[in-house]
Design a protein around this nucleic acid. Structure first.
Lengths: 196, 196
DNA sequence: ATTTGCCTAACGGACACTTGTTTGTTATTC
DNA sequence: GAATAACAAACAAGTGTCCGTTAGGCAAAT
């Protein structure tokens, strides 16, 4: 019988992620967090070094997930349209399955101290450049329109994927795979080169 | 000679909007705000009733702007595609010209107390329903695809428009009108009914 | 089986500081 | 002089963190 119980530290990150997402980082006190875990505020320090550690970790996990999901696609042998479909699918899935930490990431990363701010800014660039490269590749292969503004097209795709954190809720009519499919079907006509 | 100086209250809202946008509502103290205005923290209360008033006002102004911009388009006699183009243009323009309050709105509205939360939630629904109606109208007129999922199409459009607050910066290469045009050109092929 | 010792986690309280707000006083403007 | 805006100080409550104490779990020894 494998123990399925999370470590205390894992519990702390999870509940912190939830509270930070709902209330905001600064509006969540360590006493609130501890109470939600059934302990006193000072006890958290047996497991973590401080409040900022929580934010750093949550944001880092979020960016790791995006990176992990998209990275394999960089070198995948796929058509640009299939790659777009798959990228949207995994991207939206990351958000859907970790809504709290995605929300914390989108709202709070800029509030990190200088050291972490720069690291996270770099990782955001990596995701953005993934989509730019995807669009660029599509153009070079003659699949996407040569007239596309690579940066704007990438931003448009990223907008659609990221805004999911605002409206998606588990239990709704659409699964993340479905959303990605519908989105891809709507975006592709505006990306694909004319077949005249 | 007309006085061009803003009232103290207007200054307070403006600086609050800026600081709340940069740091977050809860991470901005009234003393910080006052210092930025060249006065002491307690002096703010000669002009406003309290901190929440600031947030309420900033968020309310933001939603008012979206409403004011989009409302005339509800009854405008335009083709669906032109209406989409114009809606995106004014929507993005609101964000571009009031980046701080748009950011505060998107990040902080959920932190309002119950009374205002519900009011703002309603106003968000109004904007969302504007885009749903636009898509529905396009379908009914046979201009947009009958197979479109009205809700998802509306959300997709809204994603694109709203995410502008993340990446748009004044002084960049693209004006909000240009962005709207490029976006519309990219979105329309995925919306328009086939012309076979 | 019981006892002992060690370690870790949590308690309970405290510290130094911050926060939103209030209030009496002072300064400025009309 | 009156009204308003700003100052300066204070209040009560809250905040992140620290720290001595207690409690519980576990392993080893008897």
């Amino acid at each position: 019988m494998q123990p399925s119980t999370k470590t205390r530290k894992e519990q702390i990150y999870e509940v912190a992620s939830e509270l930070f997402s709902q209330r905001g980082y600064h509006a969540t006190s360590m006493r609130d967090l501890a109470a939600r875990l059934g302990m006193q505020g000072g006890s958290l320090y047996a497991h973590i070094s401080g409040k900022e550690e929580l934010l750093v970790e949550i944001v880092t996990q979020a960016t790791d997930r995006f990176d992990t999901a998209l990275r394999p696609l960089r070198t995948a042998q796929m058509s640009p349209q299939d790659k777009l479909r798959e990228a949207l699918r995994v991207h939206i899935q990351v958000i859907a399955t970790h809504l709290d930490s995605a929300t914390v990431f989108f709202h709070e990363w800029q509030h990190l101290g200088p050291e972490y701010y720069n690291k996270v800014a770099e990782r955001r660039d990596v995701v953005e450049s993934f989509y730019r490269d995807l669009v660029r590749e599509g153009i070079e292969k003659g699949v996407f329109r040569a007239t596309l503004d690579v940066k704007i097209a990438a931003i448009l795709i990223l907008s659609v994927a990221n805004w999911t954190y605002i409206w998606y809720r588990e239990g709704g009519p659409l699964k993340s795979d479905d959303i990605a499919r519908v989105y891809t079907d709507m975006l592709l006509p505006g990306l694909l080169a004319q077949l005249v």
